[in-house]
Write a protein that binds this DNA or RNA. Structure first.
Lengths: 250, 250
DNA sequence: CGCTTGATTGATTTGAGTCAATCCCAGTGG
DNA sequence: CCACTGGGATTGACTCAAATCAATCAAGCG
């Protein structure tokens, strides 16, 4: 009975509009005015809840639209025939995924939850229609696509040119930044993903991830306990990646 | 005098419309009808010619629009402070680059010619305007963005999970496919890029590229002479990458 | 409380990088 | 016409960062 109550409350709580969503500043609606938001709102498929380790889509599934994470976390990845996963991205609350389906209306990669997760769907056909009359939405979509692309490019630089140490430091800083943006502590957080997934994202072996976490800890840079991360010396982390990105600025 | 004549002829020859461009099937105009093409045509800045090894843009340059290669070749890349380049993509005639500027109207990477190169510019502001009234163009732009994203994802898989052998085989097949699409031989072509750039794209050392080319040659898979590549046994190449991509198909 | 799955740790191997010479051609100039 | 030169490409010798292999270890969980 108690369980049922919770279920009902949960459903109610989630019947929210973009306007009232605490994540809307991070999500697609960013920059839209109230009226525009209202129109967009009508088309959005409201949160679905999934347990952890559930596949949302896989290659060749029909592309229905963009997905926005509300809670939990999602990984997108490609696989080799031999089973290894290359993680393309981790998607935290307020972030959008599923753009890989844009090329030919079929998804090209896998998307799987990493923990209990809820998400919205922004159906593409409607979004496309709305773009006709809402320049701001059009720009927002392009901004989003450009952002994804630049994230991928940074990821390419990481995989192609950085050492294992640099990769892990870059990864921790990226997660830290994203927690901060959501209003959480940038120095103390729970990783939503497994060591295996971190390894898959960084293009290194799980054992290496373990060893590096240990090494970082021994240097007093972080404190790691399973998935709990506490960053002790963020400057040291920044130092480690100082040579990694050249944005053209001095 | 002769030189001037050539100059005039060149200018004339290049004052072509998208409609008459032999590359339009590969480029942004693909799928547009004659009328739509005509409108788009008016906004396109016609070919500029550059020598080889000339920078087209760099990080923080203002984003003006998409670039379409007409002849020659362009590389886009990020750099580490220590100088190493991670090549993000090679752009051959009929292909579009410069999308990295979409996020915030500033370019995020470098773009440099790899040989004598001519290209068109599709100004973004106009393109955006046109998208309002031309659903087909809108779709074409999204298709293009989705395609770029999926290319980047394949590149991530390559850098994160493939051996040096697999990387080079994948690279050769990719170039081969793209020559074929332009109507050239898929088994005999001149590489537009240096060994250094190949290494930068594949995330390996130049020396390794050299050694692998030699090894491929000794196995009778290819014949390499400087930049001239002749693929002898394309099946063997395909075999080498058989385990690399799992598209979900059996 | 055993069982399973993920994480850690240690021992060993290896693919690819680094360092250091050449080599070879395209372009230059005598 | 040919010698010279400089930068890319190749080749060889050696090194090393990270992978692999092989045990544990720890923690959820039915």
């Amino acid at each position: 009975m108690q369980k049922l109550m919770n279920q009902v409350q949960l459903t109610k709580q989630l019947k929210v509009s973009c306007e009232s969503c605490s994540l809307s500043d991070l999500c697609l609606p960013r920059g839209l005015n109230a009226k525009e938001l209202d129109v967009l709102d009508d088309y959005i498929e409201r949160p679905r809840n999934l347990a952890h380790n559930v596949q949302i889509y896989q290659p060749n599934d029909k592309f229905v639209g963009f997905y926005a994470v509300r809670s939990g976390g999602v990984k997108t990845y490609l696989t080799k025939k031999t089973g290894e996963q290359q993680i393309l991205g981790f998607h935290l609350p307020g972030e959008v995924f599923g753009l890989d389906g844009l090329e030919n209306s079929k998804q090209r990669c896998y998307a799987t939850t990493m923990e209990n997760t809820s998400y919205c769907i922004l159906p593409y056909d409607q979004l496309d229609q709305l773009c006709e009359d809402m320049p701001e939405l059009r720009h927002q979509v392009c901004h989003l696509l450009g952002h994804e692309m630049n994230c991928d490019h940074a990821h390419l630089l990481l995989l192609g040119q950085q050492t294992a140490h640099e990769r892990l430091a870059t990864f921790l800083l990226s997660i830290s930044t994203r927690f901060k943006r959501r209003g959480f502590s940038p120095v103390s957080f729970m990783l939503p993903m497994s060591r295996h997934d971190i390894a898959g994202y960084l293009g290194i072996a799980v054992e290496t991830v373990s060893r590096l976490f240990k090494s970082f800890q021994e240097k007093g840079i972080v404190k790691i306990n399973r998935k709990q991360v506490d960053i002790i010396d963020i400057d040291k982390l920044n130092e480690m990646v100082a040579n990694c990105e050249d944005s053209g600025q001095p």
